[in-house]
Simulated assay, not measured.
Amino acid sequence: MKNKVKQAYDRLSVRYEHEDEKYNVYNNYYERPAMIKQLPDNLKGLKVLDAGSAAGWYTEYLINQGAIPTAIDISPEMVAATKRRTKEKAEVLCWDLAEKLPFKDNTFDIIISSLTLHYLKDWDNTFFEFSRVLKPNGIFLYSVHHPIMDISISETKKYLETELLTDHWKYGNEKIEVVFYRRPLHQIINTTLKSFYLEELIEPSPREELKKKMPDSYYQLLQRPNFLIVKSINSKKK
């Protein structure tokens, strides 16, 4: 599983780094505006962990907002892309989120994880580690595939079960196999609540810009959300 994820995103890194605006319209006009809306207006001086940085879009955004970001990703090629994008202005590590994090307790003010956690089977250990390295009352903000979207490509259609799914993403004239886990909504929320207080659950609305660029996709997202955003607060005591 880990190797498949790493291989897929190593191959996708060039597109994420250089063709982001053209191919990531769902990110630019759907997921990212909704995620940024949940962040504090003033990020200056805050230490932020970008957990699953891909090619570094969020890391670059955080730098531009005056934050002090640290980025981690399992893909060596994505890590290299993040370093180039941020011009070495952030610490960037190649790391597996399923492993113990290489940071001290209470290091970060915010953890942001964009469309990454569905590649992990077990969230318990990862969320425990997030809580450990996050300051008390720190923000944990993440986005994942919406369960409604993923059940549509499930062969079993057993919504209440967690299952490994395989999808194929078009990449030029070929397709890249991408594997990830689908889990029901109650499991997403209940796992979060083991370490965090739930502040807000967001099913984002697409921006008007998407309607101009891809009207079919815009109306599809209004009928069936693709992503789910969870904003939570670290419940760890001081």
Rank of each mutant, 00 (worst) to 15 (best):
K2L: 06
K2M: 09
V5H: 02
Q7N: 12
Y9V: 11
D10I: 10
R11K: 15
R11E: 12
V14M: 07
E17W: 12
D20I: 06
N24R: 15
V25I: 12
V25L: 08
Y26H: 13
N27W: 15
N27A: 13
N28R: 09
N28P: 11
P33T: 06
A34T: 05
A34Y: 00
A34W: 01
A34V: 03
M35L: 15
K37C: 14
L43V: 08
L46C: 03
D50V: 04
D50R: 12
A54F: 10
A55Y: 10
G56I: 01
W57E: 09
W57P: 05
Y61G: 06
I63T: 10
Q65P: 11
G66L: 02
G66W: 00
A67C: 03
I72D: 00
I74N: 11
A80G: 15
A81I: 05
K83A: 12
R84Y: 04
T86R: 13
K87W: 15
E88W: 07
E88F: 13
K89P: 10
L93D: 03
W95F: 06
E99D: 04
K100F: 05
F103L: 03
K104W: 12
D105V: 06
N106D: 14
N106P: 09
N106V: 04
T107R: 10
D109R: 07
I112V: 14
S113D: 04
S113E: 06
T116Y: 01
T116D: 00
L117T: 06
H118S: 04
N125W: 01
F127M: 00
V133K: 13
K135I: 00
P136V: 05
P136R: 14
G138A: 07
F140H: 09
L141Y: 02
Y142Q: 01
S143A: 13
H145M: 11
H146C: 09
D150M: 02
S152C: 13
I153T: 02
S154W: 13
E155I: 10
K158T: 05
Y159D: 06
L165P: 04
L165G: 08
L165D: 01
L165M: 07
T166P: 01
W169E: 08
Y171F: 11
G172F: 09
G172L: 07
I176H: 11
E177F: 11
E177V: 13
V178Q: 01
R183C: 03
R183T: 03
R183M: 01
L185M: 11
I188N: 09
I189L: 13
T191P: 01
T192A: 07
T192N: 09
S195Y: 15
S195H: 15
E199I: 14
E200N: 14
E200P: 13
L201H: 09
R207L: 14
R207P: 04
E209V: 06
L210F: 08
L210N: 03
K213P: 10
S217D: 07
Q220T: 12
F227A: 02
I229D: 00
S235F: 11
K236C: 08
K236N: 14
K238H: 15
